[in-house]
Design a protein around this nucleic acid. Structure first.
Lengths: 111, 111
DNA sequence: TCCTCATACATCGAAGGTTGAGGTAACGCG
DNA sequence: CGCGTTACCTCAACCTTCGATGTATGAGGA
């Protein structure tokens, strides 16, 4: 039985994509695979969420894209983090930490 | 300067409401206050999000409501966790832990 | 007394992201 | 030749959050 998957909260995907790309450029399909693999399948990335997210992030200038040959030799659209993207990643990372801290404070009540 | 607030991800509010109510019944207004106070204002609860959430949770039978006098002597709708609500809270708590673990795994990449 | 703030409920439209389904195309393997 | 994988994309339905708006009562200060 594979580990249960839960819906990923709105907005979280963007942060994960930015983080993956902070390790180096990658194309969409690979980004999804990496997120799933690294999280040991805890997080699943639907293509119907991924591609809109990539377009969204590129429009906000947090990513830059370029068509190049993938590892398999086929054409693929590689995304890279911009400076603004790095800053945004830092902001979202921080927000996540503070949200998690707040949630744990609330869970710690009554113990 | 008050600490910056971030939008709370979709679905998170329900979990926090359930958790607050696991400490005992409370009315809507008090639930919001407690979440804000305990989180040291990191999480803000808009009334436009709160009341729909309460109705939603009650419809799913995770909460039960009852009109009673509040601490101030005025009538207020008190919500209490049901058995099903307790189970749901456990599920959501677990999902949160696993999501946080996954996010941290991804962030740990490249270190 | 009057006004304002806090309590306490509620609803609504707009905005935004996720889901799941569907569609296209090329490559490699048996 | 067919099938699974890679790799892109779009769309309608759904759901939640946000911010504004509305109602009403009670307490406290001017």
């Amino acid at each position: 039985m594979p580990p249960e998957r839960f819906p990923i909260p709105q907005g979280t995907l963007d942060m994960l994509v930015l983080q993956i790309l902070s390790l180096g450029p990658a194309h969409g399909y690979a980004i999804a695979q990496r997120i799933e693999q690294i999280s040991r399948n805890a997080v699943q990335v639907n293509q119907g969420s991924l591609y809109p997210a990539l377009h969204r992030l590129e429009q906000k200038k947090w990513l830059r894209s370029e068509w190049r040959a993938s590892e398999t030799g086929r054409e693929a659209k590689f995304y890279a983090l911009t400076r603004a993207g790095e800053k945004q990643l830092a902001i979202e990372k921080d927000s996540w930490d503070r949200l998690d801290a707040a949630v744990r404070l609330i869970f710690a009540q009554g113990e």
